[in-house]
Amino acid sequence: MGEYADLPGVRTWYETEGTGDPLVLLHGGFCTNDTWGAQRADLAVAYRVFLPERRAHGHTADVPGPLTYQDMADDTVAFLEAVVEEPAHLVGWSDGGVVALLVARDRPDLVRKVVAIGANFRPGPECFAEPSMLDEMTPSGPDLAFFRELYEPVAPDGPDHWPVVAAKVLDMWRTQPTLTPEDLARIEARTLVMSGDDDLMTLEHTTALYRAIPDAELAVVPGASHLVPLEKPGLVNRLILDHLAQEPAETMMPIRRAKPGTAAS
């Protein structure tokens, strides 16, 4: 069962599970905490897992005005301060990954490590493997039917509000985020950038994200899509747990991570 936290930006629904250091799971766009079903039990063995549902998602109401990643990041900062009450690991998937990156950039004091799965730092038309899909998605169309079925039974605004939320999310995907490599260079947390090898984002974009974050590692999961946490949960969970628990191993032939003044031979 979950409960509400009265945050400055929006009254936010969240759930908790497990014990240990805090870990916040940030779901994808249009999603609810149900989409973390393949991760939460494994992660809760080692961590105190917090699962907030962001504004206009799941049990958390919509608010007037457009939906922005920055507002959702600010909500997450408020959640960390008011509910978690200490720095936490952030594991974000898709839109949740974008939010995790923004929080890590803005409030490094609240972030331990980051896992960003299927995340992007530029708007959909610049990074989607098939940008035309944005024009094909409509609130009542088949492409969003799965998400509509997640939304309608639990949304405090009622099922009739779905077209409003769908339009807001699609507009956000078309125009946001607008981060630069310089923005990403401000992220201090050790970050695992993860994607499927057939992800919604191009591999070139994912690689650019990895290269722009100073202390980043990259995992491209073979035979997987943007839904890699559902498709390869065992592998994804091991990668997350290893990243959060272990310090980086010293590699034998570092190039990107070579110390200044040394050269590969």
Rank of each mutant, 00 (worst) to 15 (best):
L101P: 01
D157P: 06
V45D: 14
P108H: 10
L235V: 14
D198V: 06
A104P: 03
A38P: 05
Y69N: 08
K232D: 13
P222A: 12
Q39M: 08
R148N: 11
H57S: 15
L192W: 05
L90N: 04
C31I: 00
A189R: 00
T19S: 15
P163H: 08
T262C: 12
P142H: 09
T12N: 11
D74Q: 13
D215H: 13
P177I: 05
R107E: 13
G234R: 03
N120C: 10
W173F: 15
W162Y: 12
L102P: 02
V49R: 00
A145E: 15
Y4H: 06
V103T: 03
L241Y: 03
T207S: 14
V236M: 09
V115R: 01
S265G: 15
D242I: 00
M253Q: 12
P222M: 04
R211G: 15
T32A: 11
V169Q: 07
A224R: 00
L80D: 02
S195N: 14
V221R: 01
P139K: 00
G124I: 01
M172K: 03
H226A: 09
T76F: 07
W173T: 01
A116S: 14
L43T: 03
L203K: 01
D197V: 07
L23I: 08
G65I: 09
L26A: 08
I117A: 06
A167Q: 14
D75M: 05
A145L: 12
